[in-house]
Every structure is written in C-alpha cells, then in structure tokens.
Simulated assay, not measured.
Amino acid sequence: MKIKILIIVLFSIIVSCKQAVKETDIENLNGYWEIEKVILPDGEDKEYKANETFDFFELKDKSGIRKKGMQQFDGTFLTNDVSENFVIEFNEGKSYINYQTDFAKWKEEILLLNKEKLVVKNKNDLEYHYKRPTFFTKK
C-alpha cells in the first residue's frame, strides 16, 4: 500500500513539474530556427547534421507568418514569397501554433520554447526539435 502511495505521489510531482509554455514565452518564437532532430512516434531520432534552410517566424501579438530562408555567402538571406500564416492558441494549459494556407490547415503543440530551443509536436506524434542557428558572417 505504501508503495502505491509513493508511486502516485512521485507521478504527481513529475507531471506537475512539466513546464507549460506561457504567453510571455511566445515572443521567443520570433527569428530564425534550425531543425536539429525529429523524434519519431517509435522513439527513434532522425538527426539533421547540416541545414541549408531555416524557418523564420515573425510574430505580432498572437499571429504571424512562417517562411523558409537560406543564408547566402554574403551573410544575407534569400526567401521566397511563400509564407504560412499562423495564430497562437492557449487551451487547457497547452499552447499551439495553428497554421493556415490557401491549401491546408494544421496545428502543432508547442512543448518547449525559450530563447535557444523550440520543440513542437504535430498530429502524427512527430516531435520537431529546433535550435537557434549559427550563421556565417561576411568579413
């Protein structure tokens, strides 16, 4: 009986320690992000050693756009006119990015967001881990 109570208490502590993304954290979404890895539903990691493209988020209030960008050798960025509109949603202690284009709608749960890390999970249980990129600069 004591073991069951101990397990319940420990489980409650672990669950309650999970940090939810707060509204004040959302401003950290702005800027460039580089995919680091994807964790598949079976737990397997797919590592990304080098990336040519970066995701760029521009957020104002709770809505914004996401674009893909490529850094050029002169330090500038090349983007196309394709962008995905999104709205941030907070619901039952969780936060989501709701995307919409002319062709589709989808949502990703934000699991972690700070100045250096972004982790989102989609409806297929794919977990995308991003980091802030290190850019090369023109000398």
Rank of each mutant, 00 (worst) to 15 (best):
Leu10Glu: 11
Phe11His: 02
Ser12Glu: 10
Ser12Asn: 10
Ser12Ile: 09
Ile13Glu: 00
Ile13Asn: 09
Ile14Cys: 13
Val15Cys: 04
Ser16Ala: 13
Cys17Gln: 11
Lys18Thr: 14
Gln19Val: 07
Gln19Tyr: 09
Ala20Thr: 07
Val21Ser: 00
Val21Thr: 08
Lys22Ile: 07
Thr24His: 10
Asp25Pro: 07
Asp25Val: 03
Ile26Asn: 04
Ile26Tyr: 02
Glu27Asp: 07
Asn30Trp: 06
Gly31His: 07
Tyr32Phe: 14
Trp33Val: 05
Trp33His: 03
Trp33Phe: 12
Ile39Trp: 03
Leu40Thr: 15
Pro41Arg: 04
Asp42Trp: 05
Asp42Gly: 06
Asp42Val: 05
Asp42Phe: 12
Gly43Cys: 12
Glu44Met: 10
Glu44Ala: 15
Glu44Phe: 03
Glu44Tyr: 12
Lys46Trp: 04
Lys46Phe: 04
Glu47Tyr: 14
Lys49Glu: 15
Ala50Asn: 15
Asn51Trp: 00
Glu52Val: 14
Glu52Tyr: 14
Glu52Gly: 14
Glu52Ile: 13
Phe56Gln: 09
Leu59Tyr: 03
Asp61Gly: 13
Lys62Ser: 12
Lys62Glu: 05
Ile65Gln: 01
Ile65Ala: 06
Lys67Ser: 11
Lys68Val: 10
Lys68Asn: 07
Gly69Glu: 09
Gly69Cys: 10
Gly69Gln: 06
Gln72Asp: 09
Gln72Ser: 08
Phe73Trp: 11
Asp74Tyr: 01
Asp74Gly: 03
Gly75Cys: 02
Thr76Phe: 04
Thr76His: 03
Phe77Gly: 02
Leu78Tyr: 12
Leu78Gln: 11
Leu78Ile: 08
Thr79Met: 15
Val82Leu: 14
Glu84Arg: 08
Asn85Lys: 12
Asn85Tyr: 07
Asn85Glu: 09
Ile88Glu: 00
Phe90Asp: 01
Phe90Trp: 05
Phe90Ala: 08
Gly93Pro: 01
Lys94Glu: 14
Lys94Pro: 08
Ile97Phe: 11
Tyr99Ser: 13
Tyr99Thr: 14
Gln100Glu: 15
Thr101Glu: 04
Trp106Lys: 01
Lys107Pro: 04
Glu108Asn: 12
Ile110Ser: 00
Leu112Glu: 14
Leu112Lys: 13
Glu116Thr: 10
Glu116Pro: 01
Leu118Ala: 08
Val120Gly: 00
Lys121Asn: 11
Asn122Leu: 07
Asn122Ile: 03
Lys123Phe: 13
Lys123Leu: 15
Lys123Val: 13
Glu127Ala: 01
Tyr130Lys: 10
Arg132Pro: 05
Phe135Asn: 05
Phe135Cys: 06
